[in-house]
Simulated scan of single mutants.
Amino acid sequence: MTRRVRRSRAAPAPAPAIALALVMGLALAGCGDDPEPGERANAPSEATRTAGPGDDVDAGDPVALDSRTVTTGLTSPWGLSATSQEAVLLSERDTGRILRVDPGSGERKELRALPDVVPGGEAGLLGLALTPDESALLAYYTVEESSRIVSMPWDGQSLGEPEVLLEGIPGGAGYHQGGALLVGPDDLLYVGTGDNGVPESAQDRGSLSGKVLRLTLDGQPAPGNPFDDEVYSYGHRNVQGLAFDDEGRLWASEFGANAWDELNLIEAGGDYGWPQVEGSGGGEGQTDPVVVWRTEDASPSGLAHWDGSLWMAALRGERLWEIPLGDGDAPVEQPVGHLAGELGRLRSVLALPGSDGLLLVTSNTDGRGEVRDGDDRALLLTR
């Protein structure tokens, strides 16, 4: 059954000519370079860690990662979801294809292409998530003027026809689409959305833009949500990564504008400040990020929890950030960067079942990267 949501009360989307100009400008500048007012960016607070290139892992450091190429020749890979059959389901943003990839052999198979995906800029086929019983695959993607979440039956070999679970997520501007999907330990679906180029919509709780949403697996608002609708937290600019740690805490990676990218610890009903503030130092009732990065060092997309750390894929920063989880009063330790400049733009990262390692995909064919021989690729990372 199609779930239709109310229209956003935020400002209307830009006219097509203006929207195209904005998208072209963003493509030239790269993520994290949007012309936002400087007063929105604050210096980090004492409680917020700051990371940068000086926190990269030195060559030969014993915590460095080993890597093996799994498959090459992908086109703008984005979403990742692991099966119990030691396979990974992978989405391609710009082609609308969903592939099955074997991390061991590198064998891959196209399962289906979604015909109504409308790519462009940051839009297209984005996040994937399997239901806990693996009976269905959920996907987040953009259509003409909005984004939606669909469910497709999955029998371990093939995907059935998509059924719309939630539609009316503002989209179609070509940037700040969000796209993260994650089924939590509570068997509820968590969704990261972007502000779709309308910053004020992130503070509008009547809009699905700039939010973390929490839904049942059939697309309904989850019981116990703080505002009795789909919204779980708000005040976000562009959430492309979500991860739970072993303590059941929800983390989100978030694109900043001119100054600070963020790692946030998500609490029900929390206001994370955008667009009043970028980075830390928000007003009363607003929650500061746990870690910030300069936008040239991160532009964060995918997020995963593995081996006692959070792992965040950085696009413009061209590195994989490891954020060790802390003990006591400090939720995290100082982040360290891996693979700096070795693979180009990094889009998504997935912890494989059984602590077997991380699957990482590059994003050099997304229109903003320098395409290298074999791009885009998936790699298996181990210690």
Rank of each mutant, 00 (worst) to 15 (best):
P132S: 11
R7W: 00
T362R: 06
D246M: 11
D61T: 04
Y234V: 05
W321C: 05
L213S: 09
V143I: 15
R383V: 00
P115E: 14
G124R: 03
L263T: 08
P103H: 06
L213E: 06
P226Y: 05
D373H: 13
L125A: 03
T362P: 02
E333V: 11
S147I: 10
L379P: 01
A180N: 01
G25Q: 13
G120R: 03
G184C: 02
P324W: 13
G374P: 08
R372D: 10
A314Y: 04
T287D: 00
T362C: 07
A351M: 07
I98D: 02
N264D: 15
L159Y: 09
G206I: 02
D228H: 14
A15Q: 13
D246V: 15
T69K: 12
A17F: 09
V332E: 01
G269A: 11
Q177T: 05
A123V: 05
G73A: 11
S76L: 01
C31L: 14
T50V: 15
H236K: 09
Q276N: 15
V164K: 06
T69M: 14
E86N: 13
T71K: 02
W154D: 02
G308Q: 12
A19M: 12
V349Y: 00
Q177E: 14
A47N: 12
R6T: 15
C31P: 10
Q85T: 14
S8D: 13
D116F: 05
H236T: 11
L22Y: 03
E284T: 14
S151K: 12
D375M: 03
S280H: 08
F227T: 01
Q203C: 07
L346W: 13
L181H: 03
L310C: 04
A13S: 08
G308L: 08
L250R: 04
G30P: 06
L111D: 10
T83M: 12
N238A: 12
G273S: 08
L128Q: 07
P353M: 06
S45V: 04
E342Q: 14
L28N: 14
S81R: 04
G32I: 04
H236M: 12
L359C: 05
L325Q: 11
R6E: 14
W293A: 01
A27H: 07
V291F: 08
P153T: 12
T48G: 09
L380V: 12
A43K: 14
A330H: 13
A10V: 10
